[in-house]
């Protein structure tokens, strides 16, 4: 067989169209072609193939059953995804409101109305998006519409875009001297937020992966950045992007690394 014929391509196209089907049903001309072409026959057999001979020993199944039965207690099913999302969201929002209540609220008076509305919408949308992804992450077999990486990129990108579009862009005086305290305060708030989020998440199936850690860290960082946004009197674009956005990025990276380290240690113990 030197090359593909038009019939070979027809078989390829029909198989391609039926990705999800366990056993593709081919048209009559395609079936006739299978009798003539070894390459297509093999491809079709391979795709329709399911090994039936490999099976586990009955003793293994008996051992599994006795192990599970030994610790069989009734459990309550996890709440729906919407409730999980609500819980994550409420943790971040209530912590942020509480912190804003106790701290100075200079940010409110320094922002104009479009800035206030724009940044509030972006921060809330980011919290919602990350809460949905975190709920998917702790629920095995959930259908994801957005990947964890994409969600964190969207939350961070949304914040950056909002700052670039709505806030004045110049380097403030004492850029570093006035920035460090903001970064410290933001990270100081992200810590308790991460802890509270973890307390809510631990009822799920914790995958212990970087994606879970990154999402949790990003959400906690967003809580810190939200508080800073309304508490800080520096509302220049560079300060917001570098020092307030830094809280989000550092917190996300820390979550990612901590999850990896914990996962590594757990596997070493096992």
């Amino acid at each position: 067989m030197s090359g593909l014929t038009a019939d070979c391509k027809r078989v390829d196209e029909e198989l391609d169209r039926q990705f999800g089907s366990p056993a593709p049903a081919l048209s009559e001309p395609a079936r006739r072609h299978l009798d003539e072409c070894e390459r297509c026959r093999k491809l079709n057999e391979w795709i329709g193939h399911a090994s039936s001979s490999s099976s586990c020993r009955p003793e293994t199944l008996a051992s599994v059953h006795s192990r599970l039965s030994a610790s069989l207690n009734p459990v309550s099913a996890r709440p729906p995804l919407s409730i999980l999302v609500f819980r994550f969201g409420i943790v971040v929002v209530s912590l942020a409101l509480l912190a804003i209540g106790f701290m100075r609220r200079a940010g409110f008076s320094r922002m104009n109305v479009p800035q206030l509305i724009g940044i509030t919408i972006v921060l809330l949308a980011g919290v919602m998006l990350l809460a949905v992804c975190l709920a998917w992450e702790i629920t095995p077999g959930s259908l994801r519409r957005v990947s964890a990486t994409m969600a964190t990129a969207m939350a961070a990108g949304g914040f950056a875009a909002c700052v670039l579009l709505l806030f004045p862009w110049w380097t403030p005086e004492a850029f570093f001297a006035r920035g460090w305290p903001c970064l410290g305060e933001g990270l100081g708030l992200a810590g308790p937020a991460a802890l509270l989020l973890w307390l809510v998440a631990r009822r799920g199936a914790l995958p212990g992966t970087g994606a879970f850690g990154g999402l949790l860290g990003a959400m906690a960082g967003l809580a810190g950045a939200s508080v800073l946004q309304f508490a800080c009197d520096r509302q220049e674009g560079e300060h917001l992007l570098f020092w307030h956005g830094g809280v989000l990025l550092i917190s996300m990276a820390a979550g990612f690394l901590i999850a990896h380290v914990l996962s590594y240690l757990k596997q070493r113990e096992a």
Binding site: C56, T60, S63, V64, R67, L68, S71, V75, S76, A77, R78, P80, I138, T139, P140, G141, S142, R203, G204, A205
Partner: peptide, 19 residues
């Protein structure tokens, strides 16, 4: 397979019958 069943057992509360 055995390890998987232990994990399924530990995570059985995360399943919802509507899914």
């Amino acid at each position: 397979l055995q390890d998987c069943w232990v994990r399924i057992h530990q995570a059985r509360h995360t399943y919802r019958s509507t899914e």
